[in-house]
Design a binder for these strands. Structure first.
Length: 545
RNA sequence: GGCGGAGUAGCUCAGUGGUAGAGCAGGGGACUCAUAAGCCCUUGGUCACAGGUUCAAAUCCUGUCUCCGCUACCA
């Protein structure tokens, strides 16, 4: 992986029509871990996440609730931010598509596409629900009365045609194909890349980028004759319509980098190193988006990571089905660190995975309470009991060798977005440390040393020094996953935690992760206290639905 | 329909020619530093099915069944 000194990572922006579920925030947690990893490594890091707030659906929903659209999205955004705070998400900017600079950026992208000859006025045809707006063919149902909108089955649909702006995606087919071939890592994982490549090879059609009727959206900046739609008083001519979907939502990634008004920032942050997105929007991010950027004279992002969905008993978690986990519930039971760890350990980042409350609790107990939590607890307890709280220097026993293998593998998996595998490998090291305790039997060494046996005290100090060092390394390495757990782990071991709450500010993580990085420093461990108390089944909140 | 992927222990999965594996869950044991955790041992599988190639197949080939992903304008 590259060791660039700056790292720009984004998530998809969430549709602000409701409160968030864990299945929505899951990708944000994953991206947050990667962002924190880079911050701690010392890369200048920018992590962007936020909300997508335009669309007729949102305006409609707000109207149904008797609220102004802006109040409605403000309320939902507050719920997102609260849930993200609970999960310790650390965006450098939380972007909203209603932010003024974003509106400006989207309009500028449209202007550039126009200047480049890539947009033109055409006819958009489709089913139109008078109560809601245009419906895609997959979004309508056949009833005895004819084709209807599932949300308004009593209202007859109309087949409408309206003048809209189209983006000339077809002009970019060859360049896209070449880009995929020259940059095999651009879209990942591989099977998603192949799907997208197959789609490109099948031929690309232009897509519409404006809507004539909608008012809750970014004013389209250009009139059909090519003149500006901005009036002398600064307002926009509603006859120009609004920007539709992708020329609004996707633009957030360049807005968040400073486009177009802060060229210095933009030159620093663009192109993005990584877009983390869900599989449902892979096509828009890996095909539409590069073409849109090229049209504006900008570079494509370096990498797009496409993750899967969280399933409940084989079905996609969703708000409409009600089979989702509330992140606040999960945090309440497992703690923020536990919730983050368990989610990213249970779900491979490259595909769908079935999750359940039981599987989360089981994973928490096995990995955090029993394995790592207990390793830390028993190590600190023994240092207190046998060495009066002194923290001896690490030796160079078998654990050191294992660590020198485990660390590079961990970093590689993490940077390859294989978060679950990264943790699995790290926990092999946890297991090795636990096995070492039983192999070395420090309690026997302590007894022998107490009886005056030759060399036993040195041996005991070496063993405990190794164990405490293993705990330090694990605690620091998992800090991106467990932002509040890590400082507590280090504190139990008698170390200062050098990083700020968002992971910035400390020494380069890879230096700290060297075996024996602090061996010259004397120190004392704290009183042992379980950091990840075991969760009994009865006390766990049952999963809703 | 087309293209692609997958079917291996109760669960999640690894394993691409050479006597079936891991973690979790279940059972037993010895220990005691520890969150009754950890450690050791262990019960579970005709590797979807049927043929074929081979001295040898979960692993290669053919066919069948089942499941999943992609197959354009939802945020």
């Amino acid at each position: 992986m590259s060791s660039a000194d700056r790292y720009y990572i984004t998530t998809a922006i969430a549709y602000a029509n409701n409160r968030p579920g864990l299945h929505t925030l899951y990708e944000v947690v994953g991206a947050d871990v990667i962002a924190r990893w880079h911050r701690m490594k010392g890369d200048e890091t920018r992590f962007l996440t936020g909300t997508d707030e335009h669309s007729v659906n949102i305006a409609q929903k707000a109207a149904e609730l008797g609220k102004s659209t802006k109040d409605f999205v403000d309320e939902n955004v507050a719920l997102f931010r609260a849930a993200e705070d609970a999960l310790l998400i650390s965006p450098d900017r939380f972007i909203r598509t209603t932010d003024p600079d974003h509106i400006h950026a989207a309009q500028e992208m449209v202007r550039r596409a126009y200047a480049n000859g890539d947009i033109y006025v055409g006819d958009y045809e489709g089913w139109y629900c008078p109560a809601e707006g245009f419906k895609s063919p997959s979004d309508v149902i056949e009833t005895a009365d004819g084709t209807r909108c599932p949300n308004h089955p009593t209202v007859p649909l109309q087949w409408l045609s309206e003048h809209n702006w189209f983006f000339r995606l077809s002009a970019y087919q060859a360049r896209l194909e070449r880009h995929f071939e020259e940059h095999p890592d651009f879209a990942q994982p591989d099977y998603r890349r192949n799907e997208m490549l197959g789609f490109i090879r099948g031929g690309l059609e232009d897509f519409s980028i404006s809507r004539a009727g909608a008012t809750w959206g970014i004013p389209f900046p250009i009139m059909p004759d090519g003149s500006s739609s901005q009036r002398p008083d600064g307002t926009w001519d509603p006859a120009a319509g609004t920007v539709y979907v992708w020329y609004d939502a996707l633009i957030n990634y360049v807005t968040g980098a400073g486009f177009p008004d802060d060229p210095t920032a933009f030159a620093r942050w663009w192109p993005a190193d990584l877009h983390v997105i869900g599989k449902d929007i892979a096509r828009f991010h890996t095909i539409y988006w590069p073409a849109m950027l090229w049209s504006a004279g900008l570079e494509a992002p370096r990498r797009v990571w496409i993750h899967g969905w969280l399933l409940a008993q084989g079905e996609r978690m969703s708000k409409s089905l009600g089979n989702f986990l509330d992140p606040v519930d999960v945090v309440r039971t497992l703690g923020a660190d536990g919730a983050r760890y368990v989610t990213l350990r249970e779900v491979p980042f490259d595909r769908d995975a079935d999750v359940s409350w039981d599987s989360f609790v089981r994973r928490y107990n096995a990995d955090l309470a029993n394995n790592f939590g207990n390793l830390l607890n028993r190590s600190v307890s023994m240092a207190n009991r046998y060495l009066g709280g002194e923290r001896p220097a690490p030796g160079n026993g078998g654990l050191q060798g294992r660590w020198m293998q485990a660390l590079p593998a961990y970093g590689e998996k993490l940077e390859a977005c294989q978060l679950s595998e990264a943790l699995a490998g790290l926990w092999d090291f946890v297991d090795a440390a636990n096995r070492d305790v039983d192999l070395q039997q420090p309690w026997v060494l302590a007894k022998e040393a107490g009886a005056g046996a030759e060399g036993k005290n040195e041996q005991l100090r070496g063993v405990l020094g190794d164990l405490l060092e293993a705990c330090r390394l694990i605690g620091l390495a998992v800090a991106p996953f467990m932002p509040t757990g890590a400082p507590k782990i280090l504190a139990q071991l008698g170390y200062q935690y050098a990083y700020r709450a968002d992971g910035n500010g400390g020494p380069a993580l890879l230096d700290e992760l060297r075996w024996g990085a602090h061996e010259g420093e004397s120190g004392r461990v704290a009183v042992a206290e379980p950091l990840f108390p075991r969760i009994e089944a009865e006390s766990a909140t049952p999963a809703p639905g």
